[in-house]
Nucleic acid binder design. Sequence first.
DNA 1: GCAAATAGTTTGTTACTTGAACTTATTGGC
DNA 2: GCCAATAAGTTCAAGTAACAAACTATTTGC
Lengths: 417, 417
Amino acid sequence: MSSLVTVLLPVERRADRPARQQGVRDHNLAVVLRRIAEAPQPVSRADIAATTGLTRATVSSLVDSLVAGGLVAELAPEPRTGAGRPATGLVVAGAGAGALGVEINIDYVAVCLVDLTGTVRYRSVVIEDQRRLTPAQAVAGAAELVRAALATANLVSLPVAGATLAVPGLVESRTGILRVAPNLGWHDLDVRALLWGQPGLGSLPLTIDNEANLAALGELAAARPDGPSSFVYLSGEIGVGAGIVIDGELFRGTHGWGGEIGHFPVDHAGPPCSCGARGCLEQVAGQEAILRRAGLIAPATTSMVGQPDQGRLLELAEAGDPELLQALEEAGTALGLAVSGVLNVVDVDTVVLGGLYAALGRWLVPAVEREVAYRVIPHAWHPVSVRVSSLGGDAAIMGAAGAVLRGVLDNPAAHLD
Amino acid sequence: MSSLVTVLLPVERRADRPARQQGVRDHNLAVVLRRIAEAPQPVSRADIAATTGLTRATVSSLVDSLVAGGLVAELAPEPRTGAGRPATGLVVAGAGAGALGVEINIDYVAVCLVDLTGTVRYRSVVIEDQRRLTPAQAVAGAAELVRAALATANLVSLPVAGATLAVPGLVESRTGILRVAPNLGWHDLDVRALLWGQPGLGSLPLTIDNEANLAALGELAAARPDGPSSFVYLSGEIGVGAGIVIDGELFRGTHGWGGEIGHFPVDHAGPPCSCGARGCLEQVAGQEAILRRAGLIAPATTSMVGQPDQGRLLELAEAGDPELLQALEEAGTALGLAVSGVLNVVDVDTVVLGGLYAALGRWLVPAVEREVAYRVIPHAWHPVSVRVSSLGGDAAIMGAAGAVLRGVLDNPAAHLD
DNA sequence: GCAAATAGTTTGTTACTTGAACTTATTGGC
DNA sequence: GCCAATAAGTTCAAGTAACAAACTATTTGC
């Protein structure tokens, strides 16, 4: 029964808890493991000692524990350049731990199994409109995929450290309850408990979080080690969400609902929104809004979401459909306006367009860049860069699995037994 | 030469630095001192042991160090109720350390000396328009006040742990450089170095930060222990700024410029702003904008800022001047719109109106509450409360001094020698 | 073949928390 | 008035983890 908080913040780093001797070692295990994980090349014990400031003796002892626990592997000593005894290379042992990323979204359910090195060992997606199912049915479908992934992990003897579930809605981080997923029509549901209740999943450490947050984490991991460690990830799907990453940490706010950008006011005279206000970003830059403005769906109907629509959108944009290009120009401008407000508040200077926006990046980026350039106050000193996500539709499940793996890397002591 | 970072983050809590034995004790010293500081009543060693989980032996040892270092004082054992040896009460020793809060603002310079218990030992304000002075002159004026405060500290044998300087502009947290203070007309100035260069101040550990950020910290300390630990503090002066506090920590963003709310777009058809956009919050809810809309100053002129204007504003509002009330209504609505955007992004559910807005709270709060109620998405689950700051004009210097004291409380080991 | 260089291990030391026994100081029953 | 009960605080041996320095292992270069 792993609580959300435990995963997010290792015990020994909390300011109000006393420190113990054991905590020192736990912390240093994490320091050493992180060096090994972040290095592009295999590193030696001596390297680690030099870069961390720990003595070689201590590093040796810590590395021994990590090797014994299966989280680190030693490579055969390779011939070195220069004099001296050759170093034994240390790498993260992929087989040491695995994690599941699970996503229940509007029109698909997906699962992936990733090992400690970040290699995807298994991946499975079922395209099906979840709005037509009850929550119980949707969760049962997800459980089916999870069991298949667990079976695969079992087959290759990969111990699964846990799973994270991504959902398109507001998840209360203290309780894990999904307060509302407007586009699924779900509210006040303990989806995590529901998934836990499925046969075979009761003992799986399970965390739940918002899809945009996890996609942002996925982007963070994918961009390592050269990518930015602070950025705002814009998740464009039916709804519009943002995940804010600052210094490599997801910014959650007090309840875990940080980055609610969908209802940013972009146009006072704009169309009314379900939230009660007018001209919310979602009404201008959401997928349906773009389709509607481009005359591709009738004003009152709901789009058939998913790949078909996104594909059609792309085709028409490629073909240069003037109405669509105009709609994209307006969407990009609105996005730029909204994200400028966010950047001014959270003081970040990279924007990553994800989901649908990544696919439409070619047409959106210029408008976003233009708005950002004169609206973001710090831009003059720290120019804002606007880029496109490299992960595509897998960002959320990759981030979800990555969040679990990160928990292992941040607190390896908990996984040594 | 205390770096900004050192003050903000104790060494042993950084994730990439190795932990040492010494760090355990340093951390536990902080844990114990915090218990003593946060308790409303004097606590005993046994109390601390029970609440922290440390053993009585350890607590005794730690407390001894703190008493020896002058940070904690023992009270005469008071007659207890019930059997057993009476407890020796422990309290934070006010005389253990003091800190200076310094503020250079548009129309005044202020300094305060606060001891470890939060008691103001000395306070001094000089009202003078700083825009007419060169930066060097303004800093020399501030140095004069600082020397007087240091002399007072010396007189009462209060060791000064450091000072924090509050300025109305963007301070780059890595370097401490004031990038721009629009209303002072200053830019790219190392004000901290300037102040350090003044006679008698060279050895004073000095930090610099934005005025709204520090005012927010002041509000946080003043509201303790029952007040909210997460809120957005709106600083209404000539400019409009915000300080964001989340779980008792100031949110700074990547460069320390978090909370730039003054240029939040509130009205696309609004008046042009110096930043190049139209309808920025500052153009509707800044002090000059309110005065202008109420017909109290001519459209093109600059107001004579400061107490005189704020007093006049209050008088007229009390008198029910219809034009002013209309301007305040519009300002409150704009504020509510802007702060709603901020709340949605940073997920906080308390707003504190400070500075001029605190004085005008009676007329602004209803409009802000109205906007927030339907624009903030989490409002339905976690209702947003809008309150008024209790600190008035001293918020920034109190927060500035408090930031230094907090550094002592968070890392007492550094102050024991 | 031997010195220099670099990697990794061994061993005794030091710093800190722990746990249990011990001392101190008070209340309350007899 | 005495003594058991109770609670606060101290002392001290034990355990754990990092450290420093000496030591072993393995290579290059002359």
